[in-house]
Design a binder for these strands. Structure first.
Length: 592
RNA sequence: GGGGGCGUGGUCUAGCGGUUUAGGACGUCGGCCUGUCACGCCGAAGAUCGCGGGUUCAAAUCCCGUCGCUCCCGCCA
């Protein structure tokens, strides 16, 4: 019997410093790199806390040296040795432990390793699917360790902050009732009630509202949410929300809380001071200025309306559009007047993807030359007015689009983002937060020919718009808001309805009859009968915020085991087909 | 549901009708090397060019299909 299982570490690799010189230590870790000089072997040993250099010298211990020759990358070893100051000028300033090294006295190989399919280090160029298949190796990379570390710190900051603000963390069920509206549900068959299904929550929305009726007053949850929709770089079938709900509050109470939370998070995790309050922008202004409800304000290039000027010109296309109730709007592309015909055509191709006919370019050439298909149809005065409207100067290119405002604006918004990226106008070091407020309550669903909720059916209309609900519902603004960071929607919330009558009326407007409402949301409506307090909440998307803090383009980089864009897990192979026997218990038959 | 891009040793890639016995870098293996840390030097192994079909005297290269990955549109109350 060995006296001990293995040489257990007394120190972590990354924490050793010059102060430890002279001490005998035991370290455990993975072989990051072996450098065999023939008569001397260096091994970089890596654990979660960093890397330290170990030296094997044959004159001191030939047997141990022979053992070190067998080491390979990713072997797991325990090394006992003496910490020493590195000799002469062999200090390595790239390493936190670069002042010292460990002279090995004893070694135990705890496990061997196959050669990994990719090198365990930062800045590797490897196909992502391979990284996901071998995620356990990928996570060993310092960069991924750091992402997981920051994720932990962020979640801890959230818990500390909300605890300090008197919030209660409460878990809500994962197996819940399916809701046909909104995103598609992931379904879970019930064995005990064969033929019936649970759904996984798209969000804990109704439960957190019920918790307000329950008198919890301040609730939060680090909540996993599930949506069975097609994926994107920043969309996973399961993701995490910081789900928050409060009673006896108005919109600004919640925005203020969200602001303080982000400020605390950025300060504790990054040491970064966020400027508060975050700018508030109405949905209407956001659309008019940026063509999108989640503007990236790290660069300008705002949308300019020249409808009035265009109406005065002899340009027939413009006049027709304006007479038909349309608008002429555009953006200024700084220093792009030199674009070739081909480059300008590419801009048109870009907007054609979204259904526009193409852009109308105005290039401001040297000497005040107004180069555009518009030139002949406009007076010098009109040209001057257009240039003034865009605050343009020689060398700029203006891209105009004509059509209905709600058609033109989103396309210009996309063009703005595309060109902001192409022209490298975005300062990547910035964290630009803002709130978009006063969203429309409803929008008209052309396909289904009915009115839909813009946010969700439990959102309260703004009090000043209550009177429009019966007469002109599409004009009603909701007490809903989004928090936007660098052009990403990172939180969404609203003040909720807490009156049964109003709730039923809103459901009716979106086509859910009183009977249907009772059947599907009866528990909520009934709860409203028992003293529901005014309440509201917000749900920041944890993954996106972390990705932004870590400077990553995809949330996959900050999730330990993400799915690929097909919704598969490359490591485990999920989802898989299920044996008939297992399906039989559930009384389920799969159609072939 | 639709569109774009990519698929070449373990990894990243070059080649894009014949000069290819498919080139390079990293990694791997072996040899030499006592101060390396992107160690160095010498040598070696390692690829049905995703898969199937077609065009052609000739296909990694062109065409069609298919699979995989990825990005976008729709979708995501």
């Amino acid at each position: 019997m060995k006296a001990r299982a293995f040489l257990k570490r007394t120190k972590k690799c990354g924490e050793l410093r010059i102060e430890d010189v002279g001490n005998e230590v035991i370290i455990n870790g993975w072989v990051n790199k072996r450098r065999d000089l023939g008569g001397l072997i260096f091994v970089d040993l890596r654990d979660r806390f960093g890397i330290v250099q170990v030296v094997f010298n044959p004159t001191e211990n030939p047997e141990l040296f022979a053992q070190a020759e067998k080491l390979r990358s990713e072997y797991v070893v325990a090394i006992k040795g003496v910490v020493g100051k590195r000799p002469g000028d062999t200090r390595n300033s790239n390493l936190g432990t670069g002042d010292i090294e460990i002279t090995a006295r004893e070694m135990e190989i705890l496990n061997t390793s196959k050669t990994p399919p990719f090198v365990i280090k930062d800045d590797i160029k490897v196909d992502e699917s391979l990284r996901l298949k071998y995620r356990y190796l990928d996570l060993r990379r310092p960069e991924m360790l750091r992402n997981m570390y920051l994720r932990h710190k962020i979640v801890k900051a959230v818990r500390d902050f909300l605890d300090n603000e008197d919030f209660l963390e409460i878990e809500t069920p994962m197996l819940i009732r399916a809701t046909p509206e909104g995103a598609r549900d992931f379904l879970v068959p019930s064995r005990m009630s064969a033929g019936k299904f649970y759904a996984l929550p798209q969000s804990p929305q109704l439960f957190k509202q019920i918790l307000m009726v329950s008198g919890m007053e301040k609730y939060f949850q680090i909540a996993r949410c599930f949506r069975d929709e097609d994926l994107r770089a920043d969309r996973q079938p399961e993701f995490t929300q910081i789900d928050i709900e409060m009673s006896f509050v108005e919109r600004d109470d919640i925005l203020g809380l969200a602001e303080r939370m982000m400020k605390f998070m950025f300060k504790t995790v990054l040491g970064h001071d966020l400027e508060t309050p975050f700018p508030r922008l109405s949905w209407e202004d956001a659309m008019n200025r940026y063509g999108i409800d989640k503007p990236d304000t790290r660069f300008g290039m705002e949308i300019v309306d020249v409808t009035e000027i265009a109406a005065k010109t002899d340009f027939q296309v413009f006049r027709n559009v304006i007479e038909g109730g349309g608008v002429i709007k555009g953006i200024k592309l700084p220093s792009c007047a030199g674009y070739s015909r081909k480059r300008v055509d590419e801009l048109s191709e870009f907007v054609k993807k979204y259904g526009a006919h193409g852009i109308l370019p105005i290039a401001l050439k040297e000497g005040g030359n107004f180069k555009s298909p518009l030139a002949k149809a406009t007076t010098d005065e009109q040209k001057r007015e257009i240039i003034e409207a865009f605050d343009a100067k020689e060398g700029d290119l203006i891209a105009l689009l004509a059509g209905k405002a709600d058609f033109v604006l989103p396309i210009l918004g996309k063009l703005r983002l595309e060109m902001g990226n192409q022209l490298d106008l975005i300062d990547k070091s910035k964290f630009n937060f803002l709130f978009v407020i006063d969203f429309p309550m409803f929008h008209f669903n052309e396909e289904e020919n009915r009115i839909d909720s813009e946010h969700h059916p439990f959102t309260s209309p703004k009090t000043e718009d209550m009177h429009l609900i019966d007469t002109d519902p599409l004009k009603v603004k909701a007490d809903a808001y989004d928090m936007v960071l660098n052009g990403h929607e990172v939180a969404s919330g609203s003040i909720r309805i807490h009156s049964k009558d109003l709730q039923k009326k809103i459901l009716e407007i979106i086509g859910i009859s009183s009977e249907e409402a009772d059947q599907r949301f009866g528990f909520l409506l009934e709860a409203f009968d028992y003293g529901a307090p005014p309440h509201g909440g917000i749900a920041p998307g944890l993954d996106r915020i972390i990705a932004e803090i870590c400077g990553k383009n995809t949330i996959r980089e900050v999730i330990a085991f993400p799915k690929n864009t097909a919704g598969d897990c490359p490591m485990t192979g999920a989802p898989v087909e299920i044996e008939d026997e297992q399906l039989g218990v559930l009384k389920i038959k799969v159609k072939k």
